[in-house]
Amino acid sequence: MKAKKLMELVSQFLDADSKTQQEEIKSIRKVLKELKGKELKLRAKLAEKTHSDPEDAEAIKLKLDVIYAQRRKGVMKVFTLKRKSVTNKNTDKVDD
């Protein structure tokens, strides 16, 4: 193993912050997936209710709006964390 690669692995191991960030991204992705699942279920329900019960359909649309907004927040958080992670790596490289 080249010395440079070895140094990188050691750095990752020692960099707890980066590890936490990865874990956070992972758990956010999990929630995003759950929300996506919920969204799909609601979409199916919406298709059923659009004609039979317009008021219920309205309520479902509102829930969908909220899920969109929540997912957007989640995605933004993932972007922020990733950007932070990349910035950290670049800083490390420059330091090298």
Partner: peptide
Amino acid sequence: DETAEAFNLDEADIQQL
């Protein structure tokens, strides 16, 4: 739950909606 906190809509988000 810090993960859930990332998704929670605050007052401004709700107003936007």
